[in-house]
Amino acid sequence: MDIRQLARGTVPWDRLERVATILARRYDRDAVRVEFLAADNWLSIPCIVDDEWFVKIVTKQHTRVHALLTAGRNAGALSSGSGGFFTRFETPLAMVEHEYEATQRMREIGCNAPEPIEAFEANGLGVLVLEYLPAFESVDDLDATRVRALAPELFATLATMHDNGLAHGDLRAENLLVADGDLYFIDATKVLPDRQAAARAYDLACALAILEPRVGVRSAVAAASEQYAAEDLLDARDFLDFVRLRPDHRFDSTRLRSELEKWAALSEG
């Protein structure tokens, strides 16, 4: 068996059918059409319901995988000279409730995110229902010209989140979607309330890591500097080695660190 399949575990078909039945009842429909996505997702079973809702089904196994990832990320944060700031979920319901609340909060402060419909428990499974964006691309799918055009919006949105006491905690290209020309943030994870400063620096480092290989180091840092002060750029620098260890980020940490230090020195001078 593929280790990823083993880690994610499986859900008996009758339990998934029960979730579909519950969704139909909750939305006053005789039945719903469910399309399960062939996504390599470690933390939920994603599906589209009636081409209207994007639904995540979370099992206890998904919370165990999240706990393992959280432990690894906290170890990485320690290696960067910061204490760990990620936190785990005890139950599938807690996991989907957090994403519902984080998504709702992002929308309240003016950030683009899919509309959260509800989060509930069904037979021990956590179920999150979100607005379905029918035509979207991830930033991973865009060419360099389009990514460069979106860079100011990326950092402006991130700064809005940070200025309002939020941190994303899992910023990567797959969690940045473009629909109808707008940039949407999804899949925010949970961070400790008293470690927001470190989490925000980590977010900024992740955003720079997304952009550097696509638009170049100077363009990435210049876009970030429109929203963030020199001290913020230097705080992000301290997380670059940690971010580079993540399999979903491939960038030149040495060049990025050098450019951040140069830009900070010029700003302070």
Rank of each mutant, 00 (worst) to 15 (best):
A135C: 07
E153V: 07
A20V: 00
S138L: 04
R15E: 11
E268W: 10
T160P: 03
V147E: 05
S80Y: 02
R25E: 14
L68F: 10
N123Y: 09
Y228M: 04
D252H: 03
C206R: 00
V58P: 06
R195P: 04
K262T: 13
L158W: 06
E153F: 03
P114V: 05
A197G: 00
A173D: 15
Y100V: 05
V65I: 11
P152M: 02
E35C: 06
L133T: 01
L133M: 01
P46R: 09
V178P: 05
R200N: 14
K60M: 09
L150H: 01
A230L: 00
T145F: 12
D2G: 03
E121L: 12
Q104K: 13
K56E: 05
V217Y: 00
H66F: 01
A122C: 15
S253P: 04
N175R: 05
D140L: 13
E90Y: 06
Q196W: 03
T87W: 04
E35H: 07
L256E: 05
D203N: 00
V49E: 01
D241P: 00
W13Y: 14
G110R: 07
L154Q: 01
R218V: 06
Q61R: 14
R29P: 08
F242D: 03
R26S: 10
L37A: 12
D51H: 11
R218Y: 03
L158A: 10
S82M: 10
R255N: 09
T103V: 10
L166N: 02
R18W: 05
R15F: 04
T70E: 02
I45E: 15
L43S: 09
C47H: 09
F251Q: 04
V191C: 12
L37G: 11
F242R: 02
T157G: 13
M95V: 01
R107F: 05
R148V: 00
A222E: 08
E115N: 11
W263L: 09
H66C: 00
R246C: 11
L176M: 13
V217K: 00
H249K: 09
M95N: 03
E212V: 02
H62K: 07
F155L: 12
N112E: 15
M161Q: 10
E121R: 10
I57T: 03
R33M: 04
T160A: 12
E115Q: 13
L78G: 05
A67H: 00
N41H: 09
D50H: 09
I48K: 15
F242T: 05
D252G: 01
A119P: 13
L142D: 08
N175S: 08
V178K: 06
V49H: 01
R15Q: 14
V34N: 08
F89N: 01
R105H: 11
Y228K: 03
Q61T: 14
I109F: 14
E131N: 07
E259T: 04
H98G: 08
E121V: 06
A24F: 08
I117K: 13
R146L: 14
L37H: 10
Y27A: 08
